[in-house]
Amino acid sequence: MPELSIALQVLFWGIYAGCIYMLLATGLTLIFGVMKVVNFAHGEFLMLGCYATFWIVVLLGINPYLAILPAMLILGLLGIAVERLAFRPIMGTGKLNEIFVSLGLIYILQNGVAFLWGDDFRSMHSPYAAKTIPLGGINLPLDYVILVGFTALILIALHLFLKKTRLGRAMRATSQNRKAAQLMGINVERIDMLCFGLGVALAAAAGALWAISGQLFNPYTGSLPAIKAFAIIILGGLGSIPGAIVGGLIYGIAENAGGYLFGNHWKDAISFLILIAVLVVRPHGIFGEGEE
């Protein structure tokens, strides 16, 4: 049945795209939950994740999958620096300022990378690039299967971190009620910083997987995924991690199905139509609770 195998193919590609979106959106929603800041430059950290992975693999010649954690660590530290230098000074001075600072960061990061390493498309090759796994009449690229597994692993680790560790609990407390958390002796500014670093590290993981799975990347790769991640966290409810995960999955599948049905150049426009529809019909997202 060719229709079924095409549907499966579209579904699987959707899940694959969804994994990247999930990681990106989880990071974004984590930062939003704690700091109530939307970082429009979040996608630029995905792009930097691509480059970090690329350079680690090129310079050290190791298996790309081993480069994911170092890339996350490097970007996490960079994220902490960005929080300290750019976002901390404007915390509480109005939402518009956050948008404007992220806009500036987008310019700095994109063109900084273009200046350092040029703006040509790059790609890298995984040692498993040619291998596939047959499933239900279609051949799944092995890399994509590993990628889905990796995403699950990272999300489970995140879940355990937030639920079981002291620091994770402090993050959740700050997210629920900043003042009360402060009264309980939590250093909320330190939490902000670490949380931003963690969110950026998750974006870097998305970037690393994006690059390893053979996708092309250049300094401007991050902008569109970032906007989509934003749409996803609205879809899932701002600040909600389960919402970001389910939203990412739905989004990835919807986008690929839409791209298949209407042609690929419509992919991005479709994502925005979804976003606008969600915003107009349910401004607090599908899982979000009413606020304001």
Binding site: V38, F40, K95, L96, I99, I227, F230, A231, I234, G263, H265, W266, D268, A269, S271, F272, L273, L275, I276, L279, P283
Partner: peptide, 23 residues
């Protein structure tokens, strides 16, 4: 809509319009 929501919808609108005029 306010703030980021408004920013996102207007941003998305310009992408959609750009796609329509291109394709």
């Amino acid at each position: 809509l306010r703030e980021w929501f408004l920013a996102m919808v207007t941003f998305g609108f310009s992408i959609i319009i750009g796609t329509i005029f291109l394709n």
